[in-house]
Simulated scan of single mutants.
Amino acid sequence: MRAGLLAALLGAGGAAAPAAASTPEAWAQLFRAAEAACLAATGLAEARVEGAPVDFSAHVLVLVRGRWPQPHMTGAPPAAFACLYAKADGSAEAHERRLP
């Protein structure tokens, strides 16, 4: 189910309409929490968020790029992950993006 949702989100190019925010501070806090959880969920070294988080009704989509931490992956192209942060429980699930 999540894989299908993730594919749909990535296929849509993140073109979802944002919901109304309660306050700018609340949005900033939500996005900081989502970014921190997603950076940790990837397990990448030198991980960084790409672009702005995308808000959906129950999740926040965060795109992350970094390098693989395993020594045998030295020199490999950067890894790219899409991560869904669940607003309800603060969990994050990250999956590698394999783009052509």
Score class of each variant (00 low, 15 high):
M1F: 03
G4H: 12
G4R: 13
G4W: 11
L5N: 06
L6I: 14
L6V: 14
A7I: 04
A8C: 04
G14M: 05
A15T: 09
A17P: 09
P18F: 04
P18E: 12
P18V: 10
A19L: 15
A20C: 01
A21S: 13
S22P: 01
S22W: 09
T23M: 09
P24T: 13
A28H: 07
F31M: 14
R32Q: 15
R32I: 04
R32P: 02
R32Y: 06
E35Y: 01
A40L: 03
T42A: 02
A45E: 11
A45I: 02
E46V: 08
A47E: 01
R48Q: 15
V49Q: 15
V49D: 10
V49H: 10
V49E: 11
E50M: 09
A52N: 08
A52M: 04
D55Q: 07
F56P: 00
A58D: 09
A58G: 04
A58C: 03
A58N: 07
V60F: 02
L61D: 00
V64H: 07
V64D: 04
G66V: 10
R67S: 02
R67N: 00
W68I: 10
P69T: 14
H72S: 14
H72T: 08
M73H: 07
T74A: 11
G75F: 12
G75V: 11
G75Y: 13
A76F: 12
P77K: 09
A79H: 01
A80I: 04
F81H: 12
A82Y: 03
C83Q: 02
L84I: 12
A88I: 03
G90S: 00
A92G: 01
E96Q: 15
R97G: 00
P100I: 07
